[in-house]
Design a protein around this nucleic acid. Sequence first.
DNA 1: AGTGCTGGTCTATTTTTGAGACTGACATCG
DNA 2: CGATGTCAGTCTCAAAAATAGACCAGCACT
Lengths: 136, 136
Amino acid sequence: MDQAVRSAVKAATADCDRNAWDAGNCPVRDVMNRISGKWSTLLLEALAEKPHRFGELRRLVPDISQRMLTQTLRDLQRDGYIEREVFPTKPPSVEYRMTPLGRSLFGPLSKVLAWAAENHDAVRAARRSFDDAGLA
Amino acid sequence: MDQAVRSAVKAATADCDRNAWDAGNCPVRDVMNRISGKWSTLLLEALAEKPHRFGELRRLVPDISQRMLTQTLRDLQRDGYIEREVFPTKPPSVEYRMTPLGRSLFGPLSKVLAWAAENHDAVRAARRSFDDAGLA
DNA sequence: AGTGCTGGTCTATTTTTGAGACTGACATCG
DNA sequence: CGATGTCAGTCTCAAAAATAGACCAGCACT
């Protein structure tokens, strides 16, 4: 398993290693920089379940500002993870839904999310012992 | 497969859904907020391969500032993903290496990294067609 | 004495994020 | 009729975070 991971990473970063992860040149960084935004995973998680409208997402993630919701949705749309459809209803409504590309990303991504949920306690424990040991 | 993902996510977010991802309450957000920093994955990637010293990491990720390198390493250490060891050599050197916890995170995480490498072209294509279609 | 290496810290500046008011077409309430 | 609310955003300005780059101490070599 460790070997499998090793080779996956090697393949994943082959282009980067040449330039030591040169900023604009590294596919991994280019893709990850969007995914790893504060809100991106939350929204992908919500939209993985089912399509949602703007206001629904706002209620689902209560502490996101409208500004960041708009922007993050647009970024996710730009990179092809989600689609936006406007319905010409009386107050026009907008629905966001995941694309096949987004769904294919969410496969691996959900594994990380699951890891986070499972290991939250271990992380909290590590954090406590770090804080207790001298350097806050 | 879709079903498997669905249930994994459901388990992962069970606590969150109750409070609609309430900020300080959600394990996933708590863990992800650290992982998803701009530099965290890069450093985890580097240290997954083998232990490295501060200066090595700096050269490996050329466009990180010393301040962010120091801080990101400390954050990763605090959450228990990496360890820091100081060697009392003549110019004292510091080695960073992954912990078992970090390694266990890196399993799923490396899958996402691999996805990023594989699908970089698709993302770039999506980005282009979005930009070409009117709204820049 | 001067230079370079180590792993950092400190300060000032730029970038990102966030809170909150505002838009505009329509619907509902009194 | 006029007030208010919903919808999906935009705009402005302040706060928070990231960055660049100078600086530090200790030691080795020349």
